[in-house]
Amino acid sequence: MLGFLIRRIIQSIFVMLAVALIAFMMFRFMGDPVNSMVSENATTEERDEVRERLGLDQPIWVQYGRYVARAAQGDFGLSWRNARPVSTLLAERFPATAELVLVAAGLSLLIGIPLGIFTALRPHSFLAQSLQFLSLIGISLPTFVTGILLILVFSVWLGWLPSFGRGEVVDIGWWSTGFLTLSGLKALILPSVMLCLFQLTLIMRLVRSEMMEVLRTDYIKFARARGLTNRSIHFRHALKNTLIPVITIFGLQLGGLIAFAIITETVFQWPGMGALFIQAVSFGDVPVMASYLVLVSLIFVIINTSVDLLYAVLDPRLRVDGARASH
């Protein structure tokens, strides 16, 4: 278990170093960083001085080492577009994205798992068949089209819910939350529904197929043969075995949610990191792009490692390393 943990952490560090290398190369070789630091009519001497001050005259691997060291301390340089520290920009935007992604992930689990269980237990009911059909459409629909349709129906035609922004937010330290005001909560509904929809259909289909698989196993048949109640068989014996693989897939998909939040944030003008990233892409603002890449990769790596650990905790077969009894 400890060996597994150490192996995973070393692996993660290598992935992060590789990502930092990509970010550094973007930073170093796209455009001249000096241009962003000096006025347009600076002399060659002034430029050289800046170059020296930035350490750009050092060997390339020294520069990379410095980049990693600074990035590890949260220093990602200045945005080329508005000359503010990238770390400040990201910190301002992070809470909005985090709240959106968390609500969407929560919704997709909270709705997807029960629907999956239901369709697995009553596969022939009308409701289960309709859900299965709807999920097919849900998987084929481009997410931004879903978002536009939601706005068209609930904001334009019905006028029930806001179509942009976060509503009123409350600052708690550096974190700004939309959870504490009515307008903040209302503003969350449509974006999180749009973001969770694809995920939800995926989880529902996954839970359904896993659960049907588990219900066919011998240990479920044996549990029935011992006269255990249906409730225990479905929700204690079958569900636990169903959810172990679902958790892994969900962890991997959580990264997808962060990526898809870029689209949601654009549709709903949600002031998160994704919207910031899109602006950076369209203006070629390399420091912001590179830092977003590093931050998102870090989140991916943390999620993946935690999922692996969680898996090991949940599945007793992985928990004990090689302890097997003899006859």
């Binding site: 973007m26 990526a259 899109i278 892409v281 203006f283 070629g284 792009m289």
Partner: peptide, 18 residues
């Protein structure tokens, strides 16, 4: 290991930066 849309955005952004 990265979502396709993110990779495409990144390549796009790098090209625009150049």
């Amino acid at each position: 290991s990265f979502p396709a849309i993110l990779v495409a955005l990144l390549v796009n952004g790098i090209a625009r930066g150049i």
